[in-house]
Structure formats: structure tokens, C-alpha cells
Design a binder for these strands. Sequence first.
DNA 1: CGTTGCCTTGACGCCGACGTCAAGGCATAC
DNA 2: GTATGCCTTGACGTCGGCGTCAAGGCAACG
Lengths: 142, 142
Amino acid sequence: MRIGELAARGGTTARAVRYYESLGLLPGRRSGNGYRTYDEDDLRLLRQIRTLQDFGFGLEETRPFVECLRAGHPEGDSCPASLAVYRRKLGELDALIGELTAVRAQVADQLARAERARDELAAEAGVPGGPEPECELGGRAT
Amino acid sequence: MRIGELAARGGTTARAVRYYESLGLLPGRRSGNGYRTYDEDDLRLLRQIRTLQDFGFGLEETRPFVECLRAGHPEGDSCPASLAVYRRKLGELDALIGELTAVRAQVADQLARAERARDELAAEAGVPGGPEPECELGGRAT
DNA sequence: CGTTGCCTTGACGCCGACGTCAAGGCATAC
DNA sequence: GTATGCCTTGACGTCGGCGTCAAGGCAACG
Ligand SMILES: [Zn+2]
Ligand SMILES: [Zn+2]
Ligand SMILES: [Zn+2]
Ligand SMILES: [Zn+2]
């Protein structure tokens, strides 16, 4: 199989495959005419990389999985090094989700506060001598 | 106040301040000697930018808030445009948190499955004729 | 024979938010 | 005077994961 077919079957592009090879994640065997040539094992490697990429793993983080497969082990995550990456990633995900959740709450608070302020201004505007309308409609620039 | 003091009081660097100015987020007033000069209002602008940055907003997303403040409105989020950014961001955060949570679950599944497979191999290894040890300890490369 | 299609290497572009020199000007302190 | 420290513009570097030409080779089809 040549690079185009490998890429298509792996759900990516030839350019990406060459890039993975440049990182040493995929082999660079050549056939007589100089074309890269791949077998089903290589497709497994590529699919392992893609799966992890879809999980948000960086390419370097896929290396233990790839090396595990290349060592002939049954799965890319048969090795302790791969399990360690899983665990580290779980920690990172939890931390990130926690941060994002906290930020979400803060942004929701800000929105609520700003809407409340806006409504109060609108209520005052209902009475004579109330404040001017909102932004874009004019303001007292400094 | 000159750029160094502004940056320090705003919790950032002079380089960042110049960058914000290049985007039109901060003014570029100069004093006689060519130095940039700032007042307390500018510090409010900078702090508004930093706060939103800490929330993960892109600099372009801070523009409505900054323009609102520069228009003399009481808060950066007094304008509908700012509120719209808040709401859009809430949606993005919810989407992102959802994706990350789903990924977290998948990674946890993978980890559990891999650990189970490892333990099964270890159990079989306890009996004679069991499989070889894990990765890095040897494998039948292809 | 030419045309098409896939392949090759090399190299620069992109995104965002700056960091990091380089080379020089201004102002205060000693 | 000069040493120090902050300021100026300009320009290139960073990180990741490729995209996108450019210029040319190999193979099959008609
Ligand atoms: Zn093979
Ligand atoms: Zn292994
Ligand atoms: Zn002002
Ligand atoms: Zn406003």
C-alpha cells in the first residue's frame, strides 16, 4: 500500500503521514521506485495515533503506544508507559474540566450581574430624567 | 504613568501592552520625550482585558468590552455587544466541557480495559507456560 | 506519444499572544 | 562623565500539526 491509500484508510492525509514519519512514529520503508510502502501493521499504528489524537493527545504522547505496537504487543496500551500516559491525561482532563467549570460559573455570574445592571438602568430610564440609553447609542467619552 | 508601571499594575508586561496597542485595544498617547503615557482609565482598560484573558477570551473578544469602557460607560459589560460575547462564550464553554467530559470517560474506559487485560496476562503468567512479561521486557517484533 | 494521477523533497505559511534579542535614545544618580 | 535603568522601533522565534504551493519523477492508460 502506498501513502495515499494508507492515509485514506487511516482517516488522514499523506502530509500528516509524512509528518508522523518525520517524528519517528511511522516507518519510512521504500519500494524500488522510491515510494513509501506500508502494510496492515502500519495502518494499525496510524489508527492508534489518530484515535489518541481525537482524544486530544499530543503526538509525543502517542509514542509509547506506537512503540508498544511496534514491539509486537497485542494492543498499543499493553505497556506500563502507555498506561502512565492514560493516567496523566486523566489528571490533566480533570484539572482542565475543573478550571473550565469554574470559569463558566464566573462568566455566568458576570453575565447575570451585567444583565441586572442593565435592567436597573432600563427601569430608571422609564421615569423622567432617567439615564441615557445603552452603548452604541451614545456615551460620554473621556 | 509610563508603560512599565502600567504593565506591572495591570499584571502583565510592557511587551503585551504594546501588542494590545497594536491591535487598537489600548491608546498610544505619548509625552514629550516619545514615551507612552497612561492614566488610571487606561489601567481600567488593561485590567478589563486581563480579566477576560484569564477567562480564556481571545483578544478580539475583549474589544467590545474595551470600546464600551472607552465610550465612558460604567462597566465594560454595559453594552449588548459585551453581553453577546458572554453568552457566546458560555455556549462554547458548555460545548467544550461536554466534549472533554466525554473524552475523559472514553480514556477512563480505555485505561480500565487495558488494566484488566494486563491483570489477566499476569494471572496466566502465574501458571506454567504463561505468556511473556510486558513491554520493555521483550516482545516479538514484526 | 502525451496526459493523467499519484508520488518525491523542500520550503514557507498559519494561528495567537506574546518572548527575546538588537541597537539605540532619554533621564536620573553618583 | 558614566553607569544604570527604563524607554523606543524592528524583526525574528516560539509551539503544534499540519496546509499549501513548487518543481519534478514514475506508472498506467489511450
Ligand atoms: Zn509489518
Ligand atoms: Zn507493549
Ligand atoms: Zn483618560
Ligand atoms: Zn457600553
